[in-house]
Design a protein around this nucleic acid. Structure first.
Lengths: 381, 381
DNA sequence: TCAACGCGATAATACGCATTATTACGCCGG
DNA sequence: CCGGCGTAATAATGCGTATTATCGCGTTGA
């Protein structure tokens, strides 16, 4: 066990060549006018094998190379609970892919938190450079930061679809549009007509996609769209009752559990009186929570795919060479890999049923339904 | 926006001083015979403020300094599911602490997997150097690796108590001994006498601690110890019945769910006929799983505490200076911080009750108990 | 005979920072 | 007038690698 790490110089000495030669052999590159004879190449390789040399990633990076580290930056300040629950599955996918690719993952947890979300300040930005590239998770707004990213040509991939603001930005997202449309179709097929959309009207991409799909599908069936925007849970529940909705599709970020509680407090049963379809997994799951119907986002796969994409982008990039010319290596990443939308998978829970027989809100007095209603048992189907 | 990152040289130019001076001011250190006047100090600080300079962590590290990155190495190959479930809470704590301390977390996911577990090969070892120090999660065996760690004086902290093999190794663990003893006491207080220990007889520290505590507590009450070692679930269940146990303390790593299923298949009810106390959270939780009684390990806090400890160790170390003398900086970490045992917290679930009235295994015919048994309802208490 | 050229490889440099060695200057005592 | 000392800082070096510029030498064509 040598007391100091084995360097290329050590290997070089053993092989009787120069450090540069070792570097060339390692990188398997002969940059314009450098030849290495097969014989010395072998000699160097032997020396590497014997010494057990392995590159120092730090030096590698400083010298402008790649170091097999990819960063993960989450905009939302995550903890203590909600965040981890949401990002966890992404990370599982990311780590899984990283393991396969022999890549280490750097979590940028040090970034300053401003107004409850992490910022890519000049400080944070500088730190990104430690890694070959970076995965960006979560919604964010700052245009300037994005521009900076693009300017410097630093490799990165968003997890979550990017809309109008940056068609150029590489991302791996979930296909909310198709998935949402499928949910509405499902309700229509069951016979629902008064189908509402419950959720905030933000400008984030998931919301836009969900609303668009809802609107389009309803229109396709000649049904009236009915939006219920959340102020507080009680008001929302009241609105659902008032509008005599028999089904709602619900954005998952707004405490659907509480909403259903509130409805049941008003003697409205789910799903007998009102069906609930969740457009994504609930963000704030309760331990004994109900089994929602709707769809789920393939978070693990998104994470994995994003990492793979990023590693390809990195490979296609020469890295921050001092000469400044970050020419692509010929390996260009095809356009259709740059923007990936993954299918969501439908979830059959226990919150969907055919609409009640009578169109008007049913009388509060009705026989108690079994805990897990078999659709056949529901009256009038 | 300058196209290249701002370096100390840039700052130096602006302040009209040398790069070295900037470095000194930044590190707030005047190494033996170097004086910086208050006036130039301010000038440099101003320049730093104006330029928005922030150190390049890679260069920092290469030059032998610290870079505010701490590594996390997990021995167990984790995915797809079980691992994340187990390590997740630790990571939550780790990240939380890291955020507070302004530290980034590097997950060493690239390490080679040999025989189902990650190894700190020469390769992996070299990579550790990227970070200032490293957290080690999970059981492992290789003595050589440990020795190497100690030899090189690389700062690290284990999560999970280290026993005989390395009293010198810094760790943050859970107090299995006290917690296990408490569980046995709990059963004794309820009137149990035939209390078994179900679990493997490994040599890992958690097992040793649990077994010791079980043995000691039983002895203190003059009760006979009864070990049930798992081969397969059916055999274990049979053994529990044969030995007419009224309660068992169970190591959580061995599918207690399945065991209870098997018992109920034999008309043995939990907890009416047999109480189950879990010595830690179940490793393989089922979604709709039962609410176990027992104790839970404060994983988040362990993660957080370990990270804080590690950062202190790093601070107390001058880092890998080329001069080779890694003298402590005067800041020594006190012994009692080097080895921390955290209290486990008792969990009141639904798997414990007083022993059945009759000593012999009760007749299979007995009234069905309510789903969540109130101890008062249990017959014969 | 000599420039040109291909081959094989090395020397030199830069990356950005920490650290060690060295310098410049003014002042004091002898 | 000079050596010595304290102050304030700078020059120089090294970390380990990637890359660029350069070199020595034998062969070849003119």
């Amino acid at each position: 066990m040598p007391r100091h790490r084995i360097t290329q110089a050590d290997v070089a000495a053993m092989a009787g060549v120069s450090q540069a030669t070792v570097s060339f052999v390692l990188n398997d590159s002969t940059p314009a006018g450098v030849r290495i004879s097969e014989e010395t190449r072998q000699r160097v390789l032997d020396a590497i094998r014997i010494t057990g040399y392995s590159a120092n990633p730090v030096a590698q990076r400083l010298a402008g190379g790649h170091n097999q580290i990819l960063g993960v930056f989450t905009y939302e300040a995550t903890f203590p609970r909600a965040g981890r629950d949401f990002y966890g599955p992404f990370l599982v996918g990311i780590e899984h892919a990283a393991e396969k690719l022999g890549i280490d993952i750097l979590l940028f947890t040090s970034a300053r938190v401003v107004d409850g979300r992490r910022r890519l300040t000049r400080d944070g930005w500088q730190r990104l450079g430690i890694a070959d590239g970076c995965l960006l998770l979560g919604q964010h707004e700052d245009r300037g930061e994005l521009q900076h990213l693009l300017d410097t040509n630093y490799p990165f991939v968003f997890i979550g679809k990017r809309g109008s603001d940056g068609g150029r930005l590489p991302y791996v997202g979930a296909d909310y549009v198709t998935a949402t449309a499928r949910q509405v179709e499902r309700l229509v097929t069951l016979g629902h007509e008064r189908i509402g959309y419950v959720g905030p009207r933000g400008t984030d991409q998931p919301t836009l996609d969900r609303v668009d799909a809802y609107r389009a599908t309803m229109k396709a069936h000649g049904l009236t769209v009915r939006f219920v925007e959340l102020d507080d849970v009680a008001a929302t529940a009241a609105e659902i009752v008032d509008q005599r909705l028999t089904a709602v599709v619900v954005a998952p970020e707004n405490y659907p559990e509480e909403l259903v509680d509130e409805l049941e407090r008003r003697d409205v049963r789910v799903p007998e009186d009102v069906s609930f379809l969740l457009l994504g997994q609930p963000h704030h799951g309760r331990p004994g929570g109900r089994r929602w119907s709707g769809f789920s986002i393939p978070r693990e796969e998104m994470g994995a795919r994003a990492l793979v994409l990023l590693s390809r982008l990195v490979a296609a990039d020469t890295g921050p060479t001092r000469s400044g010319r970050r020419a692509t290596r010929g390996l260009t990443v095809p356009e259709d890999e740059l923007h990936q939308l993954l299918e969501c998978v439908d979830v059959d829970g226990e919150t969907v049923a055919a609409p009640p027989a009578r169109r008007r809100a049913a009388a509060p007095v009705r026989p108690a339904a079994p805990a897990r209603p078999a659709p056949a048992t529901a009256p009038g189907v």
